[in-house]
């Protein structure tokens, strides 16, 4: 079956969530959100919380509850990104330059400087795979990839981009190439990556989405995705925004 770039990324991330009891997804993350909903529909994820959705958000204690759940170990997987991500798994959500005198300023840290430490399986997702985004060392460490001597049950699990999937090796504190997306060459990944990474002798290709995954995405799961991410579902699957949609 033919599939879109978004569908490949969704199915790739969904695979990384298999076996997680509770996956939480932040705002403005339609591809990770769709991946969590897909894996839930396939039975590999117990529960999905999507912030600001009507149906996938059983939260009644306001803004604190997500973080309280994370601190207690009630969230098994979460997604973070970064304006810059470096080879040690450090992420930068603040900006480029010498803080506070920044040349480029991004929106801010949000919950990353806590969730990155506490959620066991944090999947980094950054579609743009360039030397601008994947750098040798971030300008500002919003949250570090690894830590010594502190309470840290969580951290990076992998990094998914438009070109490939990296696993994060906690013992080494760096990335290892896991698979190249169909049609992507190893040279392309080297040319566009600003950090050094390990690689296996034989590099796998990221599996194509299975027909059953695509059927789910274009059907029941797509409709669920349209609740928190209406414009995304409209663009990718032509699903129109539910009329009563509020946030």
């Amino acid at each position: 079956m033919e599939y879109s770039r978004e569908e490949l990324l969704i199915c790739t991330i969904a695979h990384m969530l298999d076996g997680v009891d509770h996956v939480a997804v932040g705002v403005a993350s339609p591809i990770p959100g769709a991946a969590a909903m897909l894996q839930h529909a396939l039975g590999g994820v117990g529960r999905v919380t999507v912030l600001n959705s009507r149906h996938a958000q059983a939260i009644t204690d306001g803004a604190t509850e997500l973080f309280d759940m994370a601190a207690q170990g009630r969230i098994g997987a979460f997604f973070l990104s970064g304006g810059q991500i470096d080879g040690q798994g450090n992420i930068n959500l603040i900006g480029i330059g010498d803080y506070p005198d920044l040349d480029v300023r991004w929106s801010g840290s949000f919950g990353s400087a806590m969730l990155y430490y506490l959620v066991p399986r944090v999947i980094l997702f950054r579609e743009e795979h360039t030397r601008r985004t994947l750098v040798e060392a971030v300008d500002f460490i919003t949250a570090p990839g690894t830590s010594d001597g502190i309470h840290r049950p969580g951290g990076p699990y992998g990094l998914v981009t438009n070109l490939c999937v990296f696993d994060f090796d906690k013992a080494v504190g760096g990335f290892r190439l896991a698979s190249l997306h169909p049609g992507v060459t190893l040279e392309e990944v080297h040319d566009n990556t600003g950090f050094v990474f390990a690689q296996p002798e034989v590099v796998r290709t990221t599996p194509h989405p299975r027909p059953c995954d695509l059927e789910q995405l274009r059907g029941a799961v797509g409709l669920r995705v349209a609740d928190p991410y209406p414009s995304f579902a409209g663009r990718v699957w032509g699903i129109s925004q539910p009329k009563e949609f509020c946030f």
């Binding site: 803080y99 840290s109 400087a113 806590m114 969730l115 990155y116 430490y117 506490l118 460490i141």
Partner: peptide, 13 residues
């Protein structure tokens, strides 16, 4: 007290 933050540049500033 709050978990996380140690090793973040947020804390330095």
């Amino acid at each position: 007290p709050i978990r996380g933050l140690i090793g973040s540049d947020l804390l330095r500033h």
